[in-house]
Amino acid sequence: MSNENGILVIAESTSEGEFKPATAELLTAAAGLAKDLNEPVSVALIGNGVSNRSDDAIALGADKVYVVDDSVFENYLNETYTVAVAQVAEQVNPRIILLGHTPNGRELGPSVAVKLETGIATDTTSLDIVDGKLEATRSLSGGLFRQKTGFPKFPNIATVHPKSFDGAEPDSSRSGETETVSVNVASGDLRSRFVSHTEAISEGIKLEDAKVIICGGRGMGSKEGFDGLYEFTGLIGESAVASTRAASDSEFCGQELMIGITGKVVSPDVYFAIALSGASQHMAGCSGSKNIIAINKDPEANIFKESQFGVVGDYQAVIPAFLDELKQLD
């Protein structure tokens, strides 16, 4: 194929029928690339009952929306979504395809790349155009280094690390076109299926929405020690407790609290890093935080290099005095 044109963003929706934050972030990234190329931004909107959201995609920056709306797409499934994306891509013939580096996007991207016989760069944090092609920067070695990836073939496909771009703000005065694409997936032929979704029960505010995160590491020593962190959430508004992989693996708390390359990516205003060493695989999930505050008994701990404020000391002595003082100041 030749005459590739524009950027195709693969949108993702929440179960409440809204775009995921990753989609608004991708539209910011796409707008920048589109400006450099002077080419349009398209959005693939795939799901069941999604047609009426095409205007929302246009408001966020789409020049053209390709809607694939069918009950077979009610839930994300690699097998069905790969067919849908590949079919839209064949119709659009884009220069670049962007997906979120979300649980579904990072699974879908490589399948689409094989189907379109092209390459993909995953978990990218910045995107540039060089000679009409994408150059995507991604992290290596658990976040220690960066690699710039080039693409010998079109389309150039990238999944984009959460929070690498600010989400596009909707502008209802924007105009764009919508086209419906009918994708034939015979459900009888499918070799995989969606079984069920179990909603996480989170006490209080969700990690992704928290303004302040209190993260405890292996150095918390025990579940009892770790549970003490919940005292913060009573004193600080919009706050939530998180963990390192070592803390979750030690069963101080559940795996769903884990921050990092395996776990969640967050970027709160304040991130308390308590009794954790600051391994690159952990920092990959929290280095976008505006302020990191470290409490660690080891003055050489890597976490201090990544922090705005630091206290050297045993958390068991530092934290009670810290919390008492906070109560005094209230």
């Binding site: 505050i293 470290a294 409490i295 201090f304 290099k305 922090s307 705005q308 404020f309 630091g310 206290v311 050297v312 000391g313 045993d314 002595a317 530092v318 934290i319 009670p320 005095a321 810290f322 919390l323 008492d324 003082e325 906070l326 100041l329």
Partner: peptide, 18 residues
């Protein structure tokens, strides 16, 4: 990084809160 250093660990905790 700005290190907060009190007389002891508890004092550092208080200074951090302030």
């Amino acid at each position: 990084v700005e290190m907060i250093e009190g007389d002891d660990a508890a004092d550092s905790g208080r200074l951090l809160a302030q």
